[in-house]
Write a protein that binds this DNA or RNA. Structure first.
Length: 885
RNA sequence: GGAGGCAUAGCUCAGUUGGUUAGAGUACAUGCUUGACAUGCAUGGGGUCGAUGAUUCGAGUUCAUCUGUCUCCACCA
C-alpha cells in the first residue's frame, strides 16, 4: 500500500475495491478513539431491516452518510459512524412465517414460541451478515467494532429502562381502546402503520324500524356486517329533520335488539341520511361517541375477521362473506332501501396489505401529548434543523395532531413487554428485570405475551447505540449526534419518535440536523417495488460498474429532499467519469519522474500553472462551501467539471509540450503542479468516490506530510498563497483565443492538418507571452504565432486573413484559399446585429437612473465594463466588414 | 378536507442570499486512427425557464391566482 506502481491500463474497479476496503479495516481507520479530544462528528445509521437485502434507497442513504462522514473525518473531526440493523418486528416475522409455510408447510404455532424465535434469530444472523457485506461493498466507512442490533442485549436493556421509566411517570398505560387490527398478521397496528387505499364500494341504506311506530330510520353504511355491534343511532341535536327522533328506540333489523337514538355533534348535518349507526367496538369515531354516551361495546368479530356469536347464524363466516349474505337477507326482508356505489378509503396493513379492522382491544399506549410538546419546541426554536427546511412542516403537522401511540403488538418477534401478571392475586408488576414471583403476594407471575412496536426500540437508536442506559464515554463524546440522514418517508415513523425520546430520556436532542433525501425511482420515474419487478440491485451495479460509479450516480444531481431517477445513462456517465479520472491519472503517473511532490514557489510557476492552481483553490472553497450546506450534488458537479473540463481538457493538454522535457526545470515544475493538483482533486473527490481515489493516491508520490492513506489525509482548503486571480484572468485570455480559433476553423471546415499562421492583435501583450505560443501550435493548429499591439495592413490584409474578434484580441488567420467571402460577411453581419442589440440593451440599462442609483456599485461597474468591451468588439467587427467590402 | 413537492434544451436534471447573453449529462449534427482515455477529442444546433398578474432599477429565482402532475396527513358514517 505504500510503494507506488504504474496503474493498470484499464479501469477495473472489481480488482481493487475489496482489497482497499480490507486494508482500511485492518488499519482501523473507521474506529475513532473516544478519548481523542478533537471535536466530534457522529452519525448513527438508519438501521436497515433484517428482512432482506439492501436496495437502491439504502444505497443512496449510505452513500450520502459516507460522503459526510469521510468529509468530516478528513477535516480532522473525531468521527464516528455507528452501523447496525433493525429487527423489524412484523416485517421479519412475516418473512420467516412465509418461508416456514412454503418450505415446511408449518405455521409458527406448530413450532411454538421458542422454536419459532430460534428460526427468526437464524434468519436475522444471515441477513445481518448480508447487509453488512453490502455496506462494505459500497465503501461505507462505519465503525464495525460498534455495530449494533435493535434487539441485542444493550438495546434490550435500553428498551426496558425506557418502558419502566415512562410507566412510572404515567406516560405508558394499558387500556381498552379501539385500535387498528390486522386480521392476517393478527396484531394491533399503530396509526402510522396503516396505509389508506381507494377502493370501490357501496353505501348500503338500511331501514331501522322505530319501536312502537310504523316508521323507520334510514342509515347508510359501508360495512353492513358491523350492524350486529350497533348500540345506538346518532343524529345531530341541531338537525331539524331528525330532532324528533331523539330519545326514541329502534329495533335492529334481523337481530331484533333495541337501540336508542342519541344526539351527538359528531353527526354532520346534511350529509347522507343524517342518521348514523353507532358501532363503538368497530369504528374509531363511534368508539368516542360510545364513550360520551356510555354505550355498550359489542365486538362482533374474532381476531381473524370471522364473525362471532353476536352475528347469530353468520357466526364463523368471514367478514366479507357475512356482508354478502347479510345484505341479501336484508334485501329479501325489505330492510334494504338502496345500494349506492361509493369509493372509499380503506385502511390496509403496511406490511401485508390486508384491510385492517378497527376493533376494541386491551393494548399498551404511550401518552403522547406531554412528550410531543418539547419535541415540537426543539424544531421550532431551531435546535433541530430539517434540511430542506420544508420537511419541518411535515413534522409539525404530525406532532401537533398526535394521538396516543399503540405500542403493543401481538407478535412473537420483538421486545417482550416487561409487564408481569400474578396468577394468584392478579396484580400487574412492571419491572426492568425478569421476575418469577409476585412482589405483592409471592404468587407465580407470567409475562405479558405481547411485544413492543419495532419503532419503540428504533426511537432510542441514537443513544442506545452509544451505551445508554450506562453512562459511557461514547455517550459523552458523541451524543447528541451531528446529523441524521434519512428519507422523507419515515419522518413520522422514526425521526419524530427519536426526537421526543432523546429529549425525554437524555434531556438532550438526539441530533442537530435532519438531512432528508428523496426516493430512488426507476428510469420511468416509478417507485421501485417488488411487485413491479423494477428494482435495481445495488450489488449488480457494483459488480458491473464499481461502487464508485454507483456512488457517483446516486450523489450527482441529487438535491436534498427530491426524488431521483436511476437509469443506465446515469450509471454509464458515472463510470465514464471514473474512467476519465483513471486515465488522466495514469497519464500523470507515466510522466512523473519526481520522487516527492512540492508546490513550487510562485516565481517559478508558469502562467498556466498559476491558472490551474488558482482554479483548484477556488474549487476547494466551493466544494467545502457546498458540502457544509449539504449541497452534495452541487459539490460533486464542481469537482466533475474541474476534473474533466479544466484539468484534463485544458491543463494536461497545455503541459504536454513541457513534459517532453520532463527533467528540465520547467518540466519538473510542471510535474509538481500536475501531481499537486491531481492529488488535491483526489482528496476533494475521496468522500464521493473512495476506492478509485485511494487506488490512484497509492500510485503517486506525495507531498511531505501526506499520510499513507488518502482517507486520513487532510481535506483541501482555500489558501491565500494559492490565489492567483490576476494571472488566472490573464491566462483565460489565451484560452479564449484558442477556443475562438478552433471555433472559426471548425465553422470553415479547415482540417486540423492545415496549419496556419496566427496573428494576435491585442492590448494585453503580457497575457500572450512567448511561453504560450506552443499552446497555439498544439491546440489551435498554428504554424507560427505573432503578437502585436497593432499589425500593419500589409501583414493582415483583407484578402488573406480571417478575422476573429474576442474580448481581448483581434485574431487573424491567413487562410485566403479557404475563405468563403459571402459566408464570412453574413457571419460578421449576424455578429454585428447581436452586438448592437446587446449594446442597446446595456445603454438603456445604464441610462436608467433607478438602476444606476439603486444597484450595487459592483454590478453597475460590471455592466459598464461589459458595454465598453462590446463597443470594442463592434469596432473590430466593423473594420473586418469594411475590409471585406 | 388539510399540507407540501414538481413544471427550465428532444430526454434526465442542476441553477446556493434576486444582478453577465440561463447551465450540465445524454441524445442529435459535423470533423478528428491527437502516444492517458472512442468509456475519448474538437465544434455546433436546440430553451419567450407551465400561464396570468404583483413587488423591484432588475425575477428562472420573491409573492398571489390559475393549469397540469406527484406525494404526505386526516377521513365522512
Amino acid at each position: 500500500m505504500n510503494t507506488y506502481e504504474e496503474l493498470p491500463k484499464t479501469y477495473s474497479p472489481s480488482e481493487f475495491e475489496d482489497r482497499i476496503y480490507e486494508k482500511w479495516c485492518e488499519k482501523g481507520y473507521f474506529t475513532p478513539d473516544v478519548k481523542d479530544n478533537r471535536p466530534a462528528f457522529s452519525v448513527v445509521i438508519p438501521p436497515p431491516n433484517v428482512t432482506g437485502q439492501l436496495h437502491m434507497g439504502h444505497a443512496l442513504d449510505e452513500t450520502l452518510q459516507d460522503i459526510l462522514v469521510r468529509y468530516k473525518r478528513m477535516q480532522g473531526y473525531n468521527t464516528l459512524w455507528v452501523p447496525g440493523t433493525d429487527h423489524a418486528g412484523i416485517a421479519t416475522q412475516i418473512k420467516v412465517e412465509e418461508r416456514l409455510r412454503v418450505e415446511e408447510e408449518l405455521t409458527r404455532y406448530d413450532l411454538g414460541r421458542d422454536k419459532f424465535l430460534e428460526r427468526v434469530w437464524a434468519w436475522k444472523d444471515k441477513y445481518e451478515n448480508r447487509i453488512s457485506g453490502q455496506l462494505k461493498k459500497l465503501g461505507s466507512s462505519c465503525d464495525w467494532s460498534r455495530q449494533r442490533f435493535t434487539m441485542d442485549e444493550g438495546c434490550s436493556r435500553a428498551v426496558r429502562e425506557v418502558f419502566v421509566n415512562l410507566y412510572d411517570k404515567g406516560l405508558i398505560y394499558r387500556g381498552h381502546r379501539i385500535i387498528n387490527w390486522c386480521p392476517s398478521c393478527l396484531t394491533a397496528l399503530s396509526d402510522a402503520e396503516v396505509e389508506y387505499k381507494d377502493q370501490p364500494g357501496f353505501f348500503w341504506h338500511i331501514k331501522y324500524p322505530i319501536k312502537g311506530e310504523d316508521g323507520y330510520v334510514e342509515v347508510a353504511t359501508t360495512r353492513p356486517e358491523t350492524m350486529f355491534g350497533d348500540t345506538a343511532v346518532a343524529v345531530n341535536p341541531d338537525d331539524e329533520n331528525t330532532k324528533h327522533l331523539i330519545g326514541k328506540t329502534l329495533i335492529l333489523p334481523i337481530v331484533g335488539r333495541e337501540i336508542p337514538v342519541i344526539a351527538d355533534d359528531y353527526v354532520e348535518i346534511g350529509f347522507g341520511t343524517g342518521c348514523v349507526k353507532i358501532t363503538p367496538a368497530h369504528d374509531p369515531n363511534d368508539f368516542l361517541v360510545g364513550q360520551r354516551h356510555n354505550l355498550e361495546q359489542i365486538k362482533v368479530m374474532n381476531d381473524d375477521a370471522t364473525m362471532n356469536s353476536y352475528a347469530g347464524k353468520y357466526e364463523g363466516l368471514d367478514r366479507y362473506e357475512c356482508r354478502r349474505q347479510l345484505v341479501s337477507e336484508l334485501e329479501q326482508k325489505g330492510f334494504l332501501v338502496k345500494k349506492v356505489p361509493h369509493d372509499h378509503n380503506v385502511g390496509v396493513c403496511y406490511r401485508c396489505g390486508t384491510t385492517v379492522e378497527p376493533l376494541t382491544s386491551d393494548q399498551w399506549f404511550v401518552r403522547m401529548k406531554p412528550l410531543a410538546e418539547p419535541a415540537i419546541k426543539a424544531v421550532e426554536d431551531g435546535s433541530i434543523k430539517f434540511i430542506p427546511e420544508r420537511f419541518s412542516k411535515n413534522y409539525f403537522n404530525w406532532m401537533n395532531n398526535i394521538l396516543d401511540w399503540c405500542i403493543s403488538r401481538q407478535l412473537w418477534w420483538g421486545h417482550r413487554i416487561p409487564a408481569f401478571y400474578c396468577q394468584s392475586c392478579g396484580e400487574m408488576t412492571v419491572s426492568k428485570e425478569d421476575i418469577t414471583v409476585c412482589p405483592k403476594c409471592g404468587g407465580k407471575v407470567e409475562q405479558d405475551s405481547d411485544v413492543l412496536d419495532t419503532w419503540f426500540s428504533s426511537a432510542l437508536w441514537p443513544f442506545e447505540t452509544l451505551g445508554w442506559p450506562d453512562d459511557t464515554e461514547e455517550l459523552r463524546k458523541y451524543y447528541p449526534t451531528s446529523v441524521l440522514v434519512t428519507g422523507y418517508d419515515i419522518i413520522t415513523f422514526w425521526v419524530s419518535r427519536m426526537i421526543f425520546s432523546g429529549l425525554e430520556h437524555m434531556g438532550q436532542k438526539p441530533f442537530s440536523t435532519v438531512f432528508i433525501h428523496g426516493l430512488v425511482r426507476d428510469a420511468q420515474g416509478r417507485k421501485m417495488s417488488k411487485s413491479l419487478g423494477n428494482g435495481i440491485d445495488p450489488l449488480e451495479i457494483i459488480k458491473q460498474y464499481g461502487a464508485d460509479a454507483l456512488r457517483f450516480a446516486l450523489a450527482s444531481g441529487n438535491s436534498p429532499g427530491n426524488d431521483m431517477r436511476f437509469s443506465d445513462e446515469k450509471i454509464e456517465a458515472a463510470r465514464n467519469f471514473a474512467n476519465k479520472l483513471w486515465n488522466a491519472s495514469r497519464f500523470v503517473r507515466m510522466n512523473l519522474t519526481v520522487e516527492s511532490v512540492e508546490l513550487p514557489s510562485s516565481e517559478k510557476l508558469a502562467l498556466e500553472d498559476k491558472w490551474i492552481i488558482d482554479k483548484f483553490n477556488r474549487l476547494a472553497a466551493n466544494v467545502t462551501g457546498a458540502l457544509d450546506k449539504f449541497e452534495i450534488g452541487v459539490a460533486l458537479a464542481q469537482i466533475y467539471d474541474f476534473t474533466w473540463d479544466i484539468f484534463c481538457d485544458w491543463y494536461i493538454e497545455l503541459v504536454k509540450p513541457r513534459l517532453n522535457d520532463k527533467d528540465s526545470d520547467r518540466g519538473r515544475i510542471c510535474q509538481n503542479v500536475l501531481a499537486y493538483v491531481l492529488i488535491g482533486t483526489l482528496k476533494l473527490l475521496h468522500p464521493f468516490m473512495p476506492f478509485i481515489t485511494e487506488e490512484i493516491y497509492q500510485s503517486l508520490p506525495h507531498e511531505a506530510g501526506d499520510p499513507e492513506s488518502i482517507m486520513i489525509s487532510s481535506y483541501p482548503e482555500y489558501s491565500e498563497t494559492c490565489c492567483f486571480e490576476q494571472e488566472s484572468e490573464q491566462f483565460s485570455r489565451v484560452i479564449d483565443a484558442i477556443k475562438a480559433i478552433r471555433t472559426r476553423r471548425s465553422e470553415m471546415n479547415v482540417p486540423p492538418s492545415r496549419k496556419s499562421k496566427v496573428f494576435i492583435q491585442t492590448k494585453y501583450r503580457s497575457s500572450f507571452s512567448d511561453n504560450c505560443y506552443p499552446f497555439f501550435v498544439s491546440m489551435a493548429s498554428a504554424s507560427q504565432v505573432l503578437v502585436a499591439d497593432e499589425f500593419s495592413p500589409d501583414e493582415v490584409s483583407a484578402d488573406n486573413a480571417v478575422q476573429i474578434i474576442t474580448d481581448s484580441a483581434s485574431i487573424y488567420l491567413p487562410l485566403a484559399d479557404i475563405i468563403d467571402f459571402e459566408k464570412e460577411k453574413a457571419r460578421l453581419e449576424t455578429e454585428k446585429k447581436k452586438l448592437l442589440s446587446e449594446i442597446d440593451r446595456l445603454e438603456k440599462k445604464l441610462q436608467n437612473q433607478g438602476f444606476v442609483s439603486k444597484a450595487p456599485a459592483s454590478v453597475v461597474q460590471g455592466e459598464k465594463a461589459k458595454l465598453a468591451r462590446y463597443a470594442e468588439n463592434l469596432d473590430g467587427v466593423n473594420s473586418a466588414l469594411e475590409k471585406l467590402n
